[in-house]
Amino acid sequence: MQELVNLFVKAIFVDNMIFAYFLGMCSYLAVSKKVSTAVGLGIAVIFVLTITVPVNFLLENYILREGALSWLSPAFAEVDLSFLSFILFIAVIASMVQLVEMTVEKFSPGLYNALGIFLPLIAVNCAILGGSLFMQERNFIGITEATVFGFGSGIGWFLAIVAIAAIREKIQYSNVPAPLKGLGITFIVTGLMGIAFMSFMGIKL
């Protein structure tokens, strides 16, 4: 149990998707002008990460990895399909996003309207594919770990985008040099936030 909590906290703060790995930067910069939309996109990312990381974990461990197919028949013990992982992962992500979109539309039209265009766009958010690729690289033991990791990474991303959106709402009233306005100052502020988040790096979990 404690290991899971550690993994969760680590995924949120120490290995923050944005500040430590720059994943999902494009939507982070493009959709952070207002807090309300940022919250919507953040929730959608948490949602999709929590679903796709465990699904891809199963895929990795029962189909792709070397020897993973041995549950089908011992003859497959040496088959290594890991070169297919990119295609399968992205296919799972794209179809999951579609599925999530339809489910949300059916059961919670309110949330669906709030998320709007962001849901389909998530398929091409690097943070989502990044979550799956990190899962593959880190060899998690069980599906619980993978789920916790996906959920934690999602929360970390959510925190980052809401924070920058709040700062950007305020910064509109500041006297920023003209060429830095908009994109430039957002980069620099994100860099400063990254420095602040680096203080978590010393924490051993």
Binding site: F19, A20, Y21, F22, P177, A178, P179, L180, L183, G184, I185, T186, F187, I188, T190, G191, L192, M193, G194, I195, M198
Partner: peptide, 18 residues
């Protein structure tokens, strides 16, 4: 460290737009 990459890009944007 990662944050300096962001700040470097920020400065490149600044110079380019100036």
């Amino acid at each position: 460290l990662p944050p300096m990459a962001l700040i470097t890009v920020g400065i490149i944007i600044w110079v380019q737009r100036a």
